[in-house]
Computed example of a mutant assay.
Amino acid sequence: MSRHPAPDEILLDYAAGALPDGPALAVALHVALDPQSQRTIDRLNAVGGALIEREPVPDLGGGSEDAALERALARLDEVPVEPRPAAPGRRHPAFDWAPAPLVPHLRPGMDWRRVMGKFDEIRLDLPGDFHRVSLLRLESGRGLPEHKHDGYEYTVVLQGGYTDDTGNYGVGDFAVGPGDHRHEPIADPGEPCIALIVVENPIVLTGPWGRWLNPLVSRGWI
């Protein structure tokens, strides 16, 4: 079970098909790596199937939307779900750590690009989605530049782990954060940390070089 699971409302949006492609990919990878989130998605899909087939479903009762959400999630355990067959172990030859939902986005000849001399990036192209979707790789002990976000950021760890002032994140862990909270993720000891990062808007560097580099970041040049 993940120490940092995706919030329930994001899992609901994912199950309903309401997320843009970038955030949906982040959730799909999290679900592929976290059995508890997979079970939640299976039960949500079962509820959706019952609604489509006009089968009786439990009355959620009145009250606020938040209260209705809590009641719906509390009753998911009552919904029987057939075990899903194990996903085939497909792996891209150069990315044997990649979970199955990522494989279709990995093209032959794809390779890491060094950014600002600090980390490696592979930019993923998801047509029709305005989010910037990237794979980032940090060597042990290396960190991303201190930055904040103008909009939402979705992160799922695929290999290794990292630590920032919000906690320690390992494989399968999911982080989502809005607003101007500053952080500086640093890769944990051991193998390189690889994560999928989805940002709504370009990051804003807050370190001493941010003033000079932010115009390049906002244009997508770095």
Rank of each mutant, 00 (worst) to 15 (best):
D34L: 04
G172C: 04
D188S: 13
L51V: 14
F95Y: 14
D42I: 09
V115N: 07
L126K: 07
E184Y: 01
L106A: 06
K118V: 11
P127Y: 08
P189T: 06
A28S: 15
V217F: 05
A6K: 03
M1K: 07
G220W: 00
V81S: 13
V198F: 01
N45V: 11
R132F: 04
N214Y: 09
V217I: 15
I222D: 00
R75P: 02
L213A: 12
R142K: 15
I197Q: 06
V31S: 09
R107P: 00
W97Y: 14
G210A: 00
G62L: 08
L69Q: 13
G167Q: 00
L126I: 04
H92F: 03
G190F: 02
D111Q: 13
G61F: 00
P215M: 02
P145M: 02
P189G: 06
P80L: 08
E82Q: 11
L25T: 03
A24Y: 01
G207W: 03
M1C: 09
H92M: 04
V115M: 12
W209T: 15
L102T: 04
A98V: 01
V57L: 11
V171N: 07
G128P: 07
E9H: 14
P208K: 06
E121H: 00
Y14I: 08
G151K: 00
A15G: 06
R54D: 05
E78A: 15
L138S: 05
P185Q: 03
T206Y: 03
R75T: 14
S218G: 12
W209K: 11
G210N: 00
A24D: 04
L29Y: 00
P23N: 02
H131M: 05
I203V: 15
L76H: 05
A195W: 09
P56H: 13
G141C: 06
